[in-house]
Design a binder for these strands. Structure first.
Ligand code: FES
Ligand code: FES
Lengths: 143, 143
DNA sequence: TATAATTACTACAAGGCAGCTAGGATATGG
DNA sequence: CCATATCCTAGCTGCCTTGTAGTAATTATA
């Protein structure tokens, strides 16, 4: 029942990206890696996935780096986690192809219910919320 | 972000235990293993844990087996999962002993919030609810 | 009291996979 | 051209879950 560290790194990294000005000019992975004390090589893989999911945009070469692909308040945690690990799966018993007993199982509604609960929580928090929380709610402008 | 199969097996097994009359007379693991198509040897380990957590009671020897240690509506899913895997941990960053950055981390409230959400869901469903759901809500007597 | 049934306990093997490292290819500003 | 970055692929490693195996302890019953 754990959020993978990859997903947590991703969230922390995007948060750091915003703090370092990534909503305006490119921020390099090296900066983020130092700020968050995460392996830069590992970050590379994370950001490639984030890029594929249209959460950030990368620009190569000197003076390159990453910027947000959309406003911070449009990036939900669910989205980020999905980009890392695919859809949140709370149980392996999600359909009949994986569990022969699926149709006759009396309790799989438990897991769809739990998934819905978790998804709902993660859908309603955005990167902007992290920033606002960190600055004590004083911040108003969102990018 | 998965409930372990051990926990799912445990829940299914207790559910089966109730269906097989385990709120009155002992039900053997062999019965449950057949009913749920789970390895009996694996069930043994599961039930030893359930016993240690005072969820079931075992009686040895011929005509032995397991019965519920308390009414089905007093057994929450959270309790069962706790018995299997310990407290639900949604992130490794739960205290400063494990994460040096804990005190200065701006986002760990996320994980405590998520944990609370999940715990709340699991706390409010009991084994009796499973039975009621399975019988279309017609059942009234709870043991 | 012998026997079959059944739980209680311990050890460990196999596999998957998350987490991370490594090396090189490609693009770009100065 | 060169320093700076992203982009892409491959693979290692250790842990943890899942499951098997063997044996001891207990008890109803004939
Ligand atoms: S859906 Fe697979 S056992 Fe319930
Ligand atoms: S608490 Fe460990 S990084 Fe946030």
């Amino acid at each position: 029942m754990k959020i993978t560290t990859k997903s947590r790194y991703a969230i922390r990294s995007i948060f750091a990206l915003v703090l370092l000005g990534g909503d305006e000019r490119p921020v390099t992975l090296t900066q983020i890696a130092e700020h968050e004390d995460i392996s830069r090589k590992y970050l590379e893989q994370i950001f490639i996935k984030l890029k594929k999911s249209k959460i950030v945009e990368g620009s190569r070469g000197a003076q390159g780096g990453y910027i947000l692909a959309k406003p911070a308040n449009m990036i939900t945690l669910k989205e980020v986690i999905y980009a890392m690990d695919g859809p949140v799966s709370v149980s392996d018993c999600t359909n009949e192809s994986v569990c022969g007993n699926f149709d006759h199982c009396g309790i799989n509604w438990l897991w769809s219910g739990l998934k819905k609960t978790v998804d709902n929580y993660l859908e309603n928090i955005t990167i902007y919320d992290l920033k606002r929380q960190a600055t004590g709610g004083k911040d108003v402008n969102l990018s």
